[in-house]
Design a protein around this nucleic acid. Structure first.
Lengths: 187, 187
DNA sequence: GTCTATATTCCGATAGAC
DNA sequence: GTCTATCGGAATATAGAC
């Protein structure tokens, strides 16, 4: 259907701009120009700019998990899947030229100015942590692991730290460091 | 001098607003209203809004290190100073209602739209890491530590991860977790 | 140096023709 | 549904009186 294609193009263009320029620095006029549509068409599909923001968050969350699944579909060992998660975040940083995590970024920009945004980001990070916990639990069931929650939180915090650090330093060293640490955590 | 007092008040008001609302969401009109000055006075002290931003960054960096010195002036042991650093970041998050790190926040908001900002943030984080490295080195000279750079990077990444995680979750659990991990890293 | 008034541009959002 | 034209307001910054 043509209607859906227009809507998808709007979300794609807006998402790129929100991510690279920031939400507040991206104007409606720029979105419609790059999507090559009229402003009336945009407001026919979205009631407001905030509506577009919600679609952006949903799209990026789906992309994140789909991207991880795609890059680990041929891996079965939980330990390798955890290490692949580090590689995945590293790759995301490289391909985006160190633009950072979508959700950390949007919370930093509008924070409490939009409670639904921070709530969405919080849930997204919980899902990421759940993913790690599932893999750590699976790994712990095989060999021996002193404290699953301890290791889970440790890995999660290290990865988040590496993402923000690489965003600021524009280098990927941190991920290699995290990988070495995590390898030590999973003997 | 009265001239300097006005300038300081401008920077103080602008800094609060930049931090809590975001840079782009804070208008010149709001700054002059809360500082109780005329717009002509503001542009007599600062050539542009970007000029105010630079003053904001300098002020927050000074505040950061002064605040850490003040809260650790009575501590001499390097291990305790490292643990106090975690408490310091935790306290900053509590008092700011989990508004996050000033520098991660501003880079997330304007990123590459202003190279001097990301450069300043990068240097600031380097200084933080240097502070940790100095303390780890001092600690390593006493007892035994396998790899100083390894431990330094590990602590640094964990703290950064805890800051962003607590900013999103609006809880301080992560810092307690980091403290336990770091205690294990420094036997 | 501080003030008021204003210039200019851009913002998000709406109205109505087709 | 897509379009053009435009609204009302807020943005940064400037001009000039005092």
């Amino acid at each position: 259907m043509k209607k859906e294609k227009v809507r998808e193009r709007i979300v794609r263009v807006a998402s790129d701009l929100f991510y690279k320029q920031g939400y507040n620095s991206t104007g409606i006029n720029q979105i419609i120009a790059e999507a090559d549509i009229a402003i009336g068409s945009l407001y026919n599909h979205f009631s407001s700019k905030n509506d577009l923001l919600q679609a952006y968050l949903v799209k990026e969350e789906v992309n994140w998990f789909e991207g991880y699944e795609n890059s680990t579909s041929n891996i079965s060992e939980p330990r390798e899947k955890l290490l692949a998660l580090i590689d995945y975040r590293k790759k995301l940083q490289q391909t985006s030229k160190f633009a950072g995590c979508h959700f950390i970024k949007i919370v930093s920009e509008i924070g409490e100015g939009n409670p639904s945004v921070s709530g969405f980001a919080r849930q997204h990070k919980e899902k990421q942590k759940d993913l790690i916990k599932t893999l750590v639990t699976e790994y712990g069931a095989q060999g021996k692991l002193s404290d699953i929650d301890f290791v889970t939180e440790n890995i999660f915090l290290l990865i988040e730290g590496a993402v923000v650090t690489s965003t600021i330093s524009k280098q990927n060293d941190s991920f290699d460091q995290v990988k070495k640490i995590v390898q030590g955590l999973l003997p």
